[in-house]
Nucleic acid binder design. Sequence first.
DNA 1: CGGGACGCCTGTGAGC
DNA 2: TGCTCACAGGCGTCCC
Length: 277
Amino acid sequence: MPEMPEVEVTRRSFAQRIAGARVQSLRLGAPLRWPLGREPAELVGATVGETLRRGKYLWLPLALPEEPAGGLLLHLGMSGSLAFTAGEPAAAGRHDHFDLHTSLGLLRLTDPRRFGAVVWAPALDGGMAARLLAGLGHEPFDEALTPERFHAALQRRRTPIKAVLLAGEVIVGAGNIYACEALFEAGIDPRLPADRISRPRAARLLAAVRQTLASALALGGSTLRDFRDAHGMDGQFQLQARVYGREAQPCPRCAAPVRRLVQAQRSTFFCAACQKR
DNA sequence: CGGGACGCCTGTGAGC
DNA sequence: TGCTCACAGGCGTCCC
């Protein structure tokens, strides 16, 4: 699934319902991206805290009686989704690779491609979690990320702006869909080296990223194939994508055909007429 | 070091 | 119908 809106929509759809639950058992399916890093039996009896999000990661705090708090860092990879169900859980299917049975219900990770991860860490800023989160940029709605700072960060990269957005080292959360959409909204050619973007255009891009992500959040994210929130609901943003997945269709602004090219091994969709270098 | 390619996996849809 | 191929929302790692 997995850009920031989908992860955040998922978080909101189960965080309140699982908070305070007592862990009863864990079930691991096929290996995910990394090993759990902890004996599952040792987590039985832990109390679930408030689920947080950092970038496209979720942090599920688990308080154990006999040791300082730790938790599970979850990532949904390309094809993962989480479901939280109270009551009688369905039997695990072939793509269900992590089950957290609790006193309030079952949190289940379904991930056909298994690029996702569930990793134990002693703290959000410790162990494996610290390593994985170390290089992340600002949260998109972090007010500390001013247009000036955004522009200054872009000035330090010569890579195409699309790749800079995807890398998440300046600003996290925009994956392939939203990076394409934000660049379209800002009228910026995805091939433009980041350091050639003027201050006013950087400000416009930052606003476009925020507006695109906010819009996707409001629409429950994008469901291209498998994304569902933890209630099993589809997202709707994909229905209003302006360029993503629309190769050869008319640009909604100028009617020129939307083009596709490959950058950093990923498809980029854009309008060569509206998006300027 | 910045920047780019690779690989992890499975599923789906297009084209033949 | 059945096969092969390209492609898919991410990201850590390795190489130059």
